[in-house]
Nucleic acid binder design. Structure first.
Length: 272
DNA sequence: TCGACTGTCCATTCATATCC
DNA sequence: GGATATGAATGGACAGTCGA
């Protein structure tokens, strides 16, 4: 009962919404929007509770095979399922044993099932998508579905990309942390686009170096004035709200005021 | 207003691939 | 072969949200 209650809450949370989607898709439940506004299970409308309960029951039937398969498809790992509570042994042991992805090597059979699921749900079958589903995009099993390297974005696609970021920025309240970080991301993207720098160079470039590059760098014409505009507006509107120490000379800062790590930068890119 | 809770951001760690 | 990039798993910190 404890697990069922926990699953109902988990499925309605952001971290559990992918698992809920898989449960709805696989069980042929009528898909229904569940608001993730921090409410607990008891305070949700009856129809939502009914839906969540059905999804949780479906997942826990045929324990543990169905549950594990759904978690793999939803990329839900043991740490998300086991954090912040004390699960019963029967639940914890199976979850740890079968959903701990560290050092995991997927089989061809698993890749085949993942590809079939992607096709069934009308998603693109690629090395990356199959690899993500089976937990290791670099595995031999996933590589078999790999096609060619992604091409470089066209100018038109690039414009749409930046328009998307602008739209996301406008959707956030002025002065909010989320808006601030999006504005920083936009500056980073423009900086990379205009300078062609690697992510490592962009992470470590100082304010002085960036200003020098913008004012007298190798860029010519509109590119240079655009770069200068990007740097100056970032320094005026965004960086002062992120910087914690006056001694910090790094241009692009993480939300905590320190230099961004490679993974953080990559995650921001991938998320866009 | 405040406390509980959720969601987001990102640092750390490890494994592997790619480039020079 | 070393340096660097990429990708995944994990968990802590903290901002945001909501109800009492």
């Amino acid at each position: 009962m404890d697990v069922l209650h926990r699953m109902c809450n988990f499925l309605s949370s952001t971290k559990g919404k992918k698992l809920l989607a898989v449960a709805a898709g696989e069980s042929r439940l009528v898909d229904m929007a569940v608001t993730s506004n921090g409410r607990d299970f008891e305070s949700r409308p009856l129809i939502e509770r009914h839906y969540l309960l059905l999804a949780a029951l479906w997942l826990l039937m045929d324990w543990p095979d169905r549950f594990v398969q759904a978690c793999i498809l939803a990329r839900t790992t043991q740490s998300r399922l086991l954090s912040d509570w004390e699960p019963p042994y029967w639940f914890e042991s199976e979850v740890r044993k079968r959903l701990d992805r560290s050092g995991y090597t997927p089989t061809e059979e698993e890749a085949k099932h993942a590809a079939a699921y992607l096709e069934r749900t009308q998603q693109r079958v690629s090395g990356k998508s199959v690899g993500q589903l089976i937990g290791n995009p670099d595995s031999m099993a996933a590589t078999a579905y790999r096609k060619q390297k992604p091409r470089t974005m066209t100018e038109e696609e690039m414009e749409r990309f930046f328009a998307g970021i602008d739209e996301a920025i406008r959707s956030k309240p002025k002065g909010s942390r989320a808006r601030l970080l999006l504005e920083r991301d936009r500056a980073i993207f423009w900086f990379i686009r205009l300078t062609g720098m690697s992510q490592r160079q962009v992470r470590t470039i100082t304010v002085a170096e960036a200003l020098a590059l913008a004012k007298m760098g190798r860029l010519a014409g509109p590119g240079r004035s655009k770069l200068e505009g990007v740097v100056l507006s970032y320094l005026r509107d965004v960086r002062p709200a992120l910087v914690k120490s006056r001694d910090n000379r790094i241009l692009f800062l993480a939300a905590n005021g320190s230099e961004m790590c490679a993974e953080a930068l990559r995650q921001r890119f991938v998320g866009k």
